[in-house]
Design a protein around this nucleic acid. Sequence first.
DNA 1: TCAAAAATAAGTATTAATACTTATTTTTTA
DNA 2: TAAAAAATAAGTATTAATACTTATTTTTGA
Lengths: 225, 225
Amino acid sequence: MIKIVLVDDHFMVRDGIRAILEDEEQYSVVGEASNGPEAIELVQSLSPDIVICDIRMPQMSGIEVVQKITALDNSVRTIMLSMHDSDEYILQSINAGAEGYLLKDAGKEEFLKAISVVSKGDKYFSGDVSSILVRSIKGSDSSNISAIDTNVAKKQSSKDLFELTKREAQILRLAVSGMTNKDIAQELNISKRTTEVHRFNLMKKMGVKNVLELNNKAREYGMIP
Amino acid sequence: MIKIVLVDDHFMVRDGIRAILEDEEQYSVVGEASNGPEAIELVQSLSPDIVICDIRMPQMSGIEVVQKITALDNSVRTIMLSMHDSDEYILQSINAGAEGYLLKDAGKEEFLKAISVVSKGDKYFSGDVSSILVRSIKGSDSSNISAIDTNVAKKQSSKDLFELTKREAQILRLAVSGMTNKDIAQELNISKRTTEVHRFNLMKKMGVKNVLELNNKAREYGMIP
DNA sequence: TCAAAAATAAGTATTAATACTTATTTTTTA
DNA sequence: TAAAAAATAAGTATTAATACTTATTTTTGA
């Protein structure tokens, strides 16, 4: 179970994010803060895995919050939420120690992907943001290019979040295309019973109870085209 | 069964389109032409419902072809295929009598939606194209605005293509969300047997044999969000 | 090289979906 | 207001999926 703390001065935003995460079993929103000092307190008392923090808040900015959180406990991963994709903000967030930067107009799918990528220890920056990064990195020394990956390279990590094996991922793709276990067995030259086990295991790993939920979840995480 | 004639000087393009349409039971590609005169002949002998025509061809341009076809038989609906979204081409196509304008880089989904919309008597213009239309209409008199609708307003007409009833469309949405017949019955306060019948009927109408194919097809046609 | 992980496959039950048909009651709408 | 269309629901069978467990054989990685 991945523990998440939400930091945003708008109740509506926190509530929206909470609603999205409530449908996902592997995540649990353990706390909410509406300002910086509260957030820092919460992180100390709850030691969450991920903090999702708005960049623009009264009193203390998200940048400062992330800076302080990272200084206190650098096992906590932070994702910045922002309205804008200005170079300034993004670079400052990275320097402060943020592992992700998401525009607020990102869809649910991208949002979940960002969390899944960051929770695996990778970094996530939404589409437009990555190009800004690339631009800024081109001017500097390239020693940290491997450390800052763009989301393009992270497509396959959603598979890892659920720890699917190669065969399971393969069967997932075939199953959501509408093939029955029998069809899949024939296609892969294995027994129907084997595909049943694979399907059972992968459904358990992904926490779904029928093929359609499997399909919907796989789509949400961008695991299928 | 909706009869379609393909007109394009490239064999590969015709073949690709044919392959897409072969998976769709409600359509049948009854003829192919590689140039204008051939196309006109085919339309006269086969009287198809829809002609899909490339705009740029040697000898006779797609615009001319559509013009002549419309003059001969104005029950035939035409969709223009183009590489470019230039104002010129689009406006000329509309004047020639085309009911749709599709960029060649449109995906399968958009392609199918365009055909479904046009086959119902509506007009379809792909995203970027609509803005050009709006721009050109703004300068002229607005008497023909209602005649030229953009694809945005056409979302619901795919439901009509399969002639789904209101209840069927409702059950489609619930079914693809992962709900079982029992769940749906409870939700709608009807018997499980009733939802089974609705599901059976709607699957028959859409020509699919399980929920996942139903899901995939509904997505293809933009019937579900 | 050897232990751990993955892939294979069978067993046993239960539940849900698919594939129809028939038939009554409501709604629409021409 | 009568006829057509839609929604309702039951019947009967068959097939497929779901929910496990156990167990053997391959692969693979440290």
